[in-house]
Amino acid sequence: MENKYLKDDIIRSSGVNPKKCMKCGKCTATCPSFDEMEYHPHQFVYMVESGDIEPLLESESLYKCLSCFACVDRCPRGVEPAKLVEAVKLSVIRQKNSNRLKADDVVKYLDEDIPQQAIVSAFRKYSK
């Protein structure tokens, strides 16, 4: 039952209708982060649709999406998988103490040349 609410929530927040998917796999074919992902874009769509969301919540894959929108632009059915990944990820990091990236940790990642853009983007993606 909880999953049902979670699914509805994710669909509402993302604005994605996973039923539009025709299972061609073009999203996964085009995803630059494929190698880093345990669950791939087409699986996000299928698993949200079938309510099998639990494994996604715990997966590193949430933080591997680059928001590059290749899957969004190339999907022949207008499913927009990246928006679904974003919504699932938000449902995790919005929980208390669930920030992926903490301010104190950033220092260890920095090098001399890293642009501010990388840091603010990472914060926006990984933390609430």
Binding site: K23, C24, G25, K26, C27, T28, A29, T30, C31, H40, H42, A70, R74
Partner: peptide, 20 residues
């Protein structure tokens, strides 16, 4: 599966596709 990207490089075409 579907092809997501074809990248011409040298005399090859690098085809990236999914095997579902």
């Amino acid at each position: 599966g579907m092809v997501g990207k074809v990248t011409p490089e040298g005399d090859k075409l690098i085809v990236r596709g999914s095997d579902l």
